[in-house]
Design a protein around this nucleic acid. Structure first.
Lengths: 113, 113
DNA sequence: CTGCTATCGCTCATCTTTGAACGATGTCGG
DNA sequence: CCGACATCGTTCAAAGATGAGCGATAGCAG
């Protein structure tokens, strides 16, 4: 079921783009935790985003901390995020309804007893 | 993040138990599709449930089809499912709220533009 | 300055999951 | 009965995800 995986990966990419747009200072670990993946995955995703030109590495605290980067969205990255948003939103609304239905089904089953 | 994995695995187990309680005739493939995992995983999960004594293999179409089983919940399986239900429901309600919040956040961001 | 601690990005051995493929069994038209 | 085809449970090589740990850097106390 790679379709499932692809969706999850797109979700991760989207959330990363979204988070970085608001706050480019986030570290890989913070990003990982925020989107719910491992540090390894976060690193991998970030690397991919940089390669695709959606994110650019900057040191906005430039001379201060050579370890960490600022993960700045490029215009291309902003566009990509916008392009994904709709698909993401649709998917999440479907998930939302499914979840709602499942919860309700479970509850009404409980009542029956 | 194995906590995440454990939760997902419990979700799968729960959904399998739930589906089988209603319809023991489900094939592994149907089960896999219904819960959203691969056939390999479905097989693995089912095997584990049988080993733990939650599910018993029967051939309710006995002499008719030697390939497929009926996956019957044992009393122990029914009890397990009941025991998991609350935890599952709580988890899903949290997810529900999170999803709701994320969707709304995304929508209001859109409006701003 | 020196040592200690925390955190950075990054790697990779380890574990998990996937799904195409297999042998076996069932179905059905001719 | 026979052959073609569908579908069963099962397997396992390949692909994916994880997170402890590495070298490097920053901050801070003495």
């Amino acid at each position: 079921m790679p379709g499932q995986r692809d969706k999850i990966q797109e979700d991760v990419r989207f959330r990363v783009l979204r988070l970085l747009e608001e706050n480019p200072e986030l570290s890989q670990r913070e990003l990982a935790e925020a989107v719910g993946v491992s540090t390894g995955s976060a690193n991998y995703v970030l690397k991919a985003l940089v390669e695709k030109g959606f994110v650019k590495l900057g040191n906005f605290k430039a001379a201060e901390d050579k370890r960490r980067y600022a993960y700045l969205l490029t215009p291309k990255g902003v566009a990509e995020k916008a392009a994904i948003t709709q698909r993401f939103l649709s998917r999440k609304m479907v998930e939302f309804e499914a979840l709602k239905a499942e919860i309700e089904a479970l509850r009404s089953e409980d009542k029956e007893k």
